[in-house]
Simulated scan of single mutants.
Amino acid sequence: MNAHPPNPPLWDVIGQLSDLFTGLDSERGIPLEQQWTLQVLKLSEEVGEAAQAVGGALGVNPRKGQSHTWHHVQEEVADTAITSLVTLHRMLGDEASAFLAAVLAEKSARFLPRSNCAEEG
């Protein structure tokens, strides 16, 4: 029986990816703020790929027909989420998780009844 090891916590993996990409860019001599800029551009690219996948799932391009499935769209949306988290971590380091939680609490308070909002602490 193959026992799978437990998955590492999300922010641990995001931190590892962030550190890897920052290290690679730093080795190439790219200044930190330029790295952040390039990472935001990468995020824009991922959003575009998700939009293209939606078009493919709906078959809106007559030359290509239905070239994607909704599973492809979901994968592209996941890529966008991962890239977003890596971008935050590259900018904020270990403070990224708390920063995201604070922004989520602020944004969700606008839409969710107070009893449904996550408790701070």
Rank of each mutant, 00 (worst) to 15 (best):
P6L: 14
M1P: 00
L88S: 03
A98T: 14
K42Q: 11
G56I: 06
E46C: 06
G48M: 10
A98G: 13
V60H: 07
V103M: 14
L112A: 11
G23K: 01
N116I: 00
D94F: 00
I30N: 06
E49Y: 06
E33A: 07
T69K: 05
G121L: 14
P5D: 11
E95Y: 02
L10I: 12
K107C: 00
H4D: 14
G15C: 00
T37K: 09
G23H: 01
T87A: 12
T87E: 05
A78S: 14
D25M: 04
C117H: 07
T87S: 13
H89A: 10
E49V: 03
E45A: 12
G121K: 12
P9Y: 12
G48V: 01
N116H: 15
N2A: 12
D25G: 03
D94N: 13
G93K: 06
E106V: 03
M91V: 11
L41S: 13
E76D: 08
A51H: 03
Q52K: 15
N7S: 15
P9F: 11
A109I: 00
G93W: 09
L112K: 08
V54A: 03
V86P: 00
D79I: 06
L24N: 05
S115Q: 13
A50I: 06
L112E: 05
R63G: 08
H72R: 08
W70P: 05
A53C: 04
Q74N: 07
L112Q: 10
G48K: 01
L58M: 11
A101S: 11
Q35F: 04
A98D: 14
K42I: 01
G59R: 10
V60P: 00
E75N: 11
A50V: 11
A96D: 04
P113L: 13
I14A: 04
E75A: 10
H89W: 08
C117M: 08
L112I: 01
W11Y: 13
N2W: 09
A51F: 08
H89F: 09
E45L: 13
A53N: 02
K42C: 05
V40A: 14
H71D: 14
W11A: 03
K42M: 11
V13R: 11
